[in-house]
Simulated scan of single mutants.
Amino acid sequence: MPTEHLLTLDGVWTDGSDPSRPGYDSDYLTFVNTYLDTLPPQTFIVRIRIHC
């Protein structure tokens, strides 16, 4: 489910497509997978896709 963008529970917007944004590194997808795997079990995950 990881995508290029992630809004964390503490309000940090990460952008895996832009090296100047918080959370970017060469292992971005690993970061996102680890983050999602460590969320509390009661957390709802919502994925929104927008095409303009």
Rank of each mutant, 00 (worst) to 15 (best):
M1P: 01
M1E: 11
M1Y: 12
P2R: 01
T3N: 09
E4A: 03
E4V: 00
E4P: 00
H5L: 13
H5E: 04
L6F: 11
L6I: 13
L7P: 07
T8V: 03
L9A: 05
D10H: 04
D10M: 03
G11V: 06
G11P: 00
V12I: 14
W13Q: 06
W13G: 01
W13P: 00
W13N: 04
T14D: 02
T14H: 13
T14Y: 11
D15V: 13
G16D: 08
G16C: 07
S17Y: 06
D18P: 03
P19H: 08
P19S: 12
P19M: 02
S20Q: 14
S20W: 07
S20D: 15
R21F: 09
P22D: 11
G23C: 08
D25P: 01
D25H: 15
S26W: 02
D27G: 15
D27T: 11
D27H: 08
D27E: 15
L29C: 02
L29D: 11
L29T: 05
L29P: 03
T30K: 03
T30Y: 00
T30G: 15
F31W: 08
F31C: 02
N33R: 09
N33D: 09
N33T: 12
T34A: 06
T34Y: 10
T34V: 04
T34R: 13
Y35E: 01
Y35A: 01
Y35H: 05
L36F: 14
L36N: 04
T38P: 02
T38W: 06
L39G: 06
P40T: 14
P40S: 15
P41I: 09
P41C: 02
P41H: 09
Q42C: 01
Q42L: 10
T43E: 13
T43S: 15
F44G: 05
F44I: 03
I45L: 14
R47D: 13
R47A: 14
I48A: 14
I48L: 15
I48W: 06
R49T: 12
R49L: 05
R49Y: 10
I50P: 04
I50K: 12
I50Y: 14
I50T: 14
H51S: 06
H51L: 08
C52Q: 13
C52E: 14
